[in-house]
Structures are given as structure tokens and as C-alpha cells.
């Protein structure tokens, strides 16, 4: 069984956020981590490797420095790593990103594709389902449990007030939640091995089944009109007094705002 995990290197939101003049993110200037939902996806794949001897390949699209994150994935236990990197792919929205990654996956054999539900930078949750759409795969989003049964994957799919147990014929794509598991740490031996292994690097030219009209900033249907650091709102009103006086003030405010 072959499992592909799509992972993304994301800015650590604790480290501050910077923009290019065109409004896109200046990813090069920020500290980075492996996106948490993706890391849970990798962990899920590594458990399938332990259970069924699955071969795990991690794929990312990003800057050359995403090599670091791929090495981390290898050190955790992934078998192969592929970096799709090319200036022509920069500034992509979810349509262009999913078109590009789907083209990369067409170069590979797979039974199961796992992605994180969403990345902590964009928070869109779009790329996973869109890859599935481009590849014609069944998609199950928001996985909180993943099992293989024969030629199918059985997934607990989370909703706000329930979950569904869904069964999809392989090949399929599953997007998973960080609640799915606690990802393992890299082992010292794994780290050593990770730097012995080769990361396969693909440029745009290695992606055959991909139209230039669907890549990068120009191939992105959504365009940024404006982006900025959030303006933090200032303090509101502050009141002191006896508990009863404070309650009276608050109840008055709630009435004013039609809350009660």
C-alpha cells in the first residue's frame, strides 16, 4: 500500500507576519513549522506503515527551505520526500496550489492521499478537497479516525454535533484534524538517516499534466485587493463599583445592545 501525505511548511504564527509589496505573504522572512493538521496526517500514515507496511511519501509545494520540513518528516519515519518548488508557482491561491499538487501526484502511484484539514496560515481547508476534485478521488474531510478495511478506507468524519462513519473505495483522499493523534517525535537515528536520504526536487517542468494558465499568481482566480496586519481594537469602557453597581451597568449595556 502506498500512502502520500501532503504537508505544508507554515509560518509559526507566534513569530509575527510579514508581507510582500503585492500583498502576498513574505514567507521567506518568517520562522516556520510543519503545519499541525498535516503533521497529524503524517502520523496517521506512519501508523498505517506500522500496521500494513505502507510506503509513506511526503509531498510539499513551497520554497527551497521546505527541505528542512521534509527532513523532519523523513526523521519521523517517512520513506520518501518530494519538494515541488519553482518561482513560477509562487503566489498561488488554493485553485492554483491544488492544480499544481494534483499534477505532482499524477507522477506517483498511491492508494491513499492524506492532507491536513487546513493550514494555520491561510485556514482555508480548501486544498485537500480541491486536489481530490482534480484527481477524481472520493474525498472525506475532517477525519478524526482512519482505518483501512480491505480495499477501502473507513473514516470517522467530524461535524459540529455528530460524526459519520464513512467508507470510501481506494484510492481516496482524506483530510485530517490535528485531534486525530499525537504526532511522534523524531528519533536521533531517524534524524541521522534523514540527512542521508535524498529529497526529490521537482520544478514546474516536471509536472506534465498542468496548464500554465492554472499556476502561480497569474493562474489564481482569487486576487488580493488588500492585506494588512490586524488593527487591534483599543480598550472599551472600564467600570469600578460595588458588585451590584457593576451588575447594573452590565445589564444596562446588554439592554442597550438588545442582548436581553
Amino acid at each position: 500500500m502506498k500512502v502520500i501525505v501532503c504537508i505544508k511548511q507554515v509560518p509559526d504564527t507566534a513569530g509575527g507576519v510579514q508581507f510582500n509589496p503585492d500583498g502576498t505573504l513574505n514567507r521567506a522572512a518568517m520562522l516556520t513549522i510543519m503545519n499541525p493538521d498535516d503533521k497529524a496526517g503524517l502520523e496517521a500514515a506512519l501508523r498505517l506503515k506500522e500496521q500494513y507496511g505502507a510506503e509513506v511519501t511526503v509531498v510539499t509545494m513551497g520554497l527551497p527551505k521546505a527541505d528542512d520540513m521534509l527532513r523532519e518528516a523523513l526523521a519521523m519515519g517517512a520513506d520518501k520526500a518530494i519538494l515541488i518548488t519553482d518561482r513560477r508557482l509562487g503566489g498561488a491561491d488554493t485553485w492554483a496550489t491544488s492544480s499544481t499538487i494534483a499534477a505532482g501526484l499524477r507522477n506517483l502511484d498511491y492508494d491513499l492521499v492524506i492532507t491536513g484539514r487546513q493550514a494555520i496560515d491561510g485556514d482555508t481547508a480548501q486544498v485537500g478537497p480541491q486536489i481530490a476534485e482534480h484527481l477524481g478521488l472520493p474525498v472525506i474531510s475532517y477525519a478524526q479516525d482512519i482505518k483501512i478495511e480491505g480495499d477501502s478506507v473507513v473514516v470517522q468524519r467530524q461535524y459540529e454535533d455528530r460524526y459519520h462513519v464513512l467508507k470510501a473505495k481506494l484510492p481516496a483522499l482524506v483530510t485530517c484534524l490535528s485531534e486525530l493523534n499525537d504526532p511522534r517525535y523524531m528519533t536521533p537515528g531517524g534524524i541521522f538517516d534523514a540527512y542521508e536520504k535524498e529529497v526529490t526536487v521537482w520544478s514546474r517542468d516536471d509536472l506534465k499534466d498542468l496548464d500554465d494558465a492554472n499556476i502561480g499568481l497569474a493562474g489564481s482566480p482569487t486576487k488580493i485587493a488588500k492585506a494588512s496586519d490586524k488593527v487591534r481594537k483599543g480598550a472599551g469602557e472600564k467600570f469600578t463599583g460595588s458588585p451590584d453597581e457593576l451588575v447594573e451597568v452590565l445589564v444596562g449595556k446588554f439592554k442597550e445592545k438588545h442582548i436581553i
Binding site: W95, P129, E133
Partner: peptide
């Protein structure tokens, strides 16, 4: 942008080949 909409939206936007802005 519910657990349904965040699955349906991306799938449909890719199928009809348009952009989608989330949340």
C-alpha cells in the same frame, strides 16, 4: 463556513473552475 460548507465549497469551486474565498 460550516463543517459541510467547508467541504462542499472547495469541491464545487474546483468543479466549476472558479475561485473560492474561505471563512
Amino acid at each position: 463556513a460550516t463543517a459541510i460548507g467547508r467541504d462542499l465549497g472547495p469541491t464545487v469551486s474546483a468543479r466549476v473552475a472558479t475561485g473560492l474565498t474561505a471563512d
